[in-house]
């Protein structure tokens, strides 16, 4: 029996131009969904069905996009969670962080808490879904991967390490159906009190010298970087030299 997979999508923001686009992580989530479920993938957006960006997602080969119709200022969470409750999904895929709005990355966690499902964060790939369990690869720093198994149903947030999204085709995108359902009307009451401004550049941390005397300050200002050249092995045999390198690799825990 094929598993029911739902991808949640949002409107992204191009990092340079600031134009709206399909969000990077969300489109990777759609790509992974297409890999798992093919065109049975259910793609859900909470917002306006008039949004042109949804056509870019649909152009990845989706016959339809489900839109939970709601105003921009409305909270997306109640609408999505009530939709998921009716759907009996096995896997829900989202991005790690949205590219617009607060981008707190809390949506998958709050959904998981409300539905009582497990959540796996920063997924690079879902290898296999079998016997009510999924084998998931998590993306770790420095290109490392961790393998975990999760019981279905679960929510996964997709990392940038996942497979890149396929190109979007314009025509199929235009022909895709937008199935509008009514979303929530609940306003985000906390956010109204926030003030938002374009991001300021963060000041670089300066190297503060806490010297008590003028001589110390002078030394700090003129000191050359510490530690000239390291150990040089010139006359040893190749074997000894290789051993020295190997010891350093073990000491640095590169080779275990």
């Amino acid at each position: 029996m094929p598993h029911k997979v739902i991808s949640l999508i949002s409107v992204g923001r191009h990092p340079q131009s600031g134009r709206s686009r399909r969000a990077d992580q969300d489109s990777r989530a759609v790509e992974l969904g297409l890999k798992l479920a093919g065109t049975d993938l259910d793609v859900v957006h909470a917002g306006s069905s008039e949004e042109p960006v949804l056509r870019q997602y649909a152009g990845m080969g989706l016959p339809k996009v489900t839109v939970l119709e709601q105003a921009e200022s409305a909270d997306a969470l109640p609408a999505i969670s009530s939709y998921l409750k009716t759907q009996q999904a096995d896997i829900v895929l989202t991005g790690v962080r949205s590219e617009s709005g607060e981008s707190s990355g809390m949506t998958p966690y709050l959904l998981a808490e409300q539905l009582g499902w497990p959540i796996v964060a920063r997924v690079a790939d879902i290898v296999e879904v079998k016997d009510g369990e999924a084998q998931v690869l998590l993306a770790l720093p420095r290109g490392q991967r961790r393998q975990v198994t999760v019981k279905l149903p679960f929510i996964a947030s997709i990392d940038n390490a996942a497979e890149a999204a396929r190109q979007s085709a314009f025509g199929p995108g235009l022909r895709a159906k937008m199935e509008a359902q009514s979303g929530s009307t609940e306003e985000d009451s906390v956010r109204v009190n926030w003030s938002e401004a374009p991001a300021k550049a963060r000041p670089k941390r300066l190297k503060v010298v806490k010297a008590k005397t003028a001589a110390d300050r002078f030394k700090a200002a003129t000191a050359k970087p510490q530690g000239g050249s390291g150990k040089v092995m010139k006359n040893e045999s190749a074997q000894e030299q290789a051993q020295a390198i190997f010891d350093l690799l073990i000491e640095e825990k590169i080779i275990r």
Partner: peptide, 13 residues
């Protein structure tokens, strides 16, 4: 705090 993929500064309590 930063929001909207680090293009926004949100000031809050």
């Amino acid at each position: 705090s930063r929001g909207a993929s680090a293009s926004l500064d949100i000031t809050r309590q």
